[in-house]
């Protein structure tokens, strides 16, 4: 098993290398000249040339790639073209809101979607099942910003229950923090709820068809007990897997949700950077998100081997 873990960990290296190469090429291929941007309106060609040399932009592709990878390894993600701040500082400033949003969405989605999926599977073919599946399809079909605006309109402007926008850091209190995040989490959670509810229902159907469940049912075991103890336990692996894979969906959605609710997180940083063509920032954020994605999926994989003895490699 240790050999498997080692192999699995090592396998992430080429993946991250591909991401790094891609992200670097993005900057390299980018149109426009960062040196010209930095120099501004009134600069002469000489000024631009001087800045280009000072940024090392006049060196060949592979040399620059090597230097860049070296910088990253030592923790230097470069400097934003527009703010002149280190990219790692800009990212650090914005990790908390995005992390909060994603975690709350995850908690919310799992606690809503799993019971939904379980009930739908239990009542397969009934109206309840259809309603749940209908909702799931709907969740895939309505874009997150539409849900966001609807929620903001109803719960913030009309009813005035929750704030419209913004973010309160966690250390200023749990409830102020929560208050700001409820609407964005629900908006962002839609797709995730749909995804998890569907996969839960599907795996539950499979597990419920197994002999030992039928036996338990025949013995007259408590229904809720069967559902949540026997069946759900065995359905957990695919559900957790889809949570890991769905992370990509979550990150993509966060980019939009943060714009709608003015949350100062990584998503808005990304959008701002893209609109201004601030390539070092784009690079840093894409690299970070990919790293998190790879890391989370690695952890999920490893958890299986630890907790499910049936999985052998």
């Amino acid at each position: 098993m240790w050999a498997y873990i080692l192999r699995r960990v090592l396998a992430t290296i080429p993946v991250m290398a591909v991401v790094a190469l891609f992200v670097f090429s993005l900057l390299y291929l980018a149109p426009g000249d960062p040196a010209a941007v930095i120099a501004g309106d009134q600069a002469t060609p000489d000024d631009v040339e001087r800045i280009r040399a000072s940024l090392g932009l006049d060196r060949p592709y592979l040399v620059r790639f090597g230097a860049w990878v070296g910088d990253i390894m030592s923790g230097d993600l470069g400097t934003s073209i527009f703010t002149n701040l280190p990219v790692s500082t800009m990212i650090a400033q914005r990790v908390e809101p995005t992390l909060s949003l994603c975690l709350l969405t995850l908690v919310l989605a799992v606690s809503i979607a799993v019971p939904m999926g379980v009930v739908a599977a239990w009542k397969q073919g009934t109206l309840v099942d259809r309603a749940v599946m209908g909702f799931a399809v709907l969740g895939f079909s309505v874009p997150v910003f539409v849900v966001g605006y609807l929620l903001a309109y109803v719960f913030a402007l009309e009813l005035d229950w929750l704030p419209v926008q913004g973010y309160t850091p966690f250390r200023e209190g749990f409830f102020p923090w929560l208050e700001n995040l409820i609407l964005p989490s629900i908006a962002l959670g839609g797709v995730y709820i749909a995804l998890i509810a569907r996969i839960t229902r599907a795996t539950m159907l499979e597990v419920l068809g197994q002999d030992y469940i039928r036996t338990a049912r025949a013995k007259g075991a408590n229904q809720a007990g069967i559902l949540f103890v026997h069946a759900l336990k065995n359905a957990a692996v695919p559900i957790v897997t889809v949570i890991g894979i769905g992370l990509a969906l979550l990150i993509g959605g966060a980019v939009v949700t943060e714009s709608v609710f003015a949350i100062p997180g990584l998503g808005r940083l990304t959008v701002d950077a893209i609109l201004r063509r601030d390539y070092p920032v784009i690079q840093g954020v894409v690299l970070l998100f990919s790293f998190v994605y790879v890391l989370v999926n690695l952890l999920i994989d490893l958890l299986y081997t630890l907790f499910d003895p049936r999985i052998r490699y």
């Binding site: 080429p14 993946v15 591909v18 190469l21 993005l26 990304t270 959008v271």
Partner: peptide, 22 residues
């Protein structure tokens, strides 16, 4: 498959956004 794994680890919307920036 290594290349595909790498590309898959970039969230699709982010990847599309980054490509559009180019």
């Amino acid at each position: 498959m290594r290349v595909m794994d790498g590309m898959m680890s970039i969230p699709p919307i982010l990847l599309a956004i980054a490509l559009m920036a180019l």
